[in-house]
């Protein structure tokens, strides 16, 4: 699997790759129809949002023969193929909420999970290592990373900080002590020299205001 020559960027590999892939397609292969793709998306959506076991069973049955086929090709062994199916589909179940339809097709996402699993299995067979490196190796361009969620959390944090600053002084000190400096309520009471009950009531007031304020924007 080692190429012996230097490769420069002037090549345009896309064309020949498409040809390779086309060459491996037999007459039994065909592209998915729009309805099939919509069906797969719907199942994924129901698994991710409702932990819908029926939808998972449908998805499982749709993909099982394909995963087994890939497994038998790669491992030449039915029981390894079975293990590939079981582990990959368990990952689909555990990770369904990380699938982002805007970043790619369901089939591509599941293909990468199967690919990762088979990489880790091959490595274990060949080198006896169980370090499961596949997630590290393929993480940067995987569909799993949801930048938009991080981004909006980050924005939300900033809004919160801004609003905390607008709270009355006494309430602000309590919120900052508990949430930003991570003090316990007792520690904070000692530090501010006020009774524990006062800390609790100021916190309740402040959180009520924050909730009301954030609610206006996030309903």
């Amino acid at each position: 699997m080692i190429e012996k020559s230097r490769q420069q960027s002037t090549e345009t590999p896309q064309g020949s790759v498409m040809k390779d892939v086309a060459a491996t397609q037999t007459s039994e292969q065909r592209l998915l129809s729009a309805e099939q793709q919509a069906q797969l998306c719907d199942w994924m959506h129901r698994i991710a949002n409702h932990r819908d076991r029926k939808a998972f069973a449908c998805l499982f049955k749709w993909f099982a023969p394909k995963v087994l086929h890939l497994g038998r090709q790669r491992f030449g062994d039915a029981s390894q193929a079975q293990e590939l199916l079981q582990e990959s589909m368990a990952n689909v179940w555990r990770k369904a909420h990380l699938f982002n339809a805007e970043k790619g097709a369901v089939t591509t996402w599941i293909y990468t999970l199967v690919r990762n699993q088979s990489f880790d299995m091959l490595r274990k067979m060949q080198t006896n290592r169980e370090d499961n490196l596949s997630e590290d190796i393929w993480q940067q361009h995987s569909n799993e990373r949801d930048d938009s969620a991080e981004f909006s959390d980050h924005l939300l944090d900033r809004q919160l900080v801004e609003y905390v600053e607008k709270l009355p002084e006494e309430q602000k000190n309590v919120v900052k002590g508990i949430y930003f400096q991570e003090l316990s309520q007792e520690e904070l009471a000692n530090q501010l020299g006020i009774p524990l009950g006062t800390v609790k009531s100021r916190l309740r007031l402040a959180l009520g205001k924050l909730k009301a304020h954030m609610g206006e924007h996030h309903d």
Partner: peptide, 12 residues
């Protein structure tokens, strides 16, 4: 990845 997935899923 997309074209590999296509042949993977296109297996009838």
């Amino acid at each position: 990845e997309a074209s590999c997935a296509q042949s993977f899923a296109g297996e009838n």
